[in-house]
Amino acid sequence: MLKIIDRKSVFKILCAFLFLVVGCNSTDKTEKNITFKETAAEKQGTLLVVANGEDFVRNGFITKDGWEIDFTKLRVSLGNVVAYQTETSFDPDQDQAINSKLAIPITKEIKVVDLTQEIGSKNLTPQNLTIVKKIMVPVGLYRAISWEMLPTNDFGFEAQTIFLQGNAMKNGKKINFELGLSVPTKYICGEFIGENRKGIVTKDKSTELEMTFHFDHLFGDNNLPSDDELNLGALGFQPLAELATIGNLRLDWQELQQKLDSADVEKLTQAIAGLGHVGEGHCKAISL
């Protein structure tokens, strides 16, 4: 018997067994990949990517320094919007990067959206949120989103990322303003925070994924105490009002940087970094 099962034979048997084990594992991987492709192709749902300027933009508000603001246009230039599926929640304050299992590019090219569209516009959802894009995506929970605000020439100014048009009133004084801001920024955000959950794509029901813009961070909120952190960090409107000529104010970012004092420019820049939210959830802002 020992002649039959000598050392060489034992070695050959072991080698054959090793190949068998490795071969079996390779087969498993292939099967998993096929399963994933079939799932991605068959199970898709509608994702409605929306931008929300909130009531501050839609209905107007009173700034921290008492100016009553009413926007007629508030346009932002969006690019490189990406929706992410992750296993667990993404915390922009703690996590370095989004550990996604699926990343869906929503818009690569620049898309300009107006956050002050009139009710009834076809570009609005029933909740009056501005539609950025409607897209079919694999089902699942989209827990994170990132987007960039990139310069565009579409605002009547050259290379601006935000365009604000409207009027401001205080003590009977009215100022018509058109302002261009250009602070290219990337916002990296986690899941939408609000009463309801958003971003859950199912086969039969469309869902929203929201980019929220908190413009009270720029101008402050008269309903809050003056020493509230939001108001302490906001520019307000008075420094801008002082630049108006005969009730008119039309300046782009380059002109604002020259005419505002440096502390106000810095305050405005920081406020723009804090502009991007997902509902009540904060985002990480990276200057581009």
Binding site: T88, S89, D91, R197, E280, G281
Partner: peptide, 19 residues
Amino acid sequence: GNWDVKIRKSGHGKIISIP
């Protein structure tokens, strides 16, 4: 699995996944 807990107050909030 992951239990998600959302805490929110005064316009601020966060969500955490707990394995």
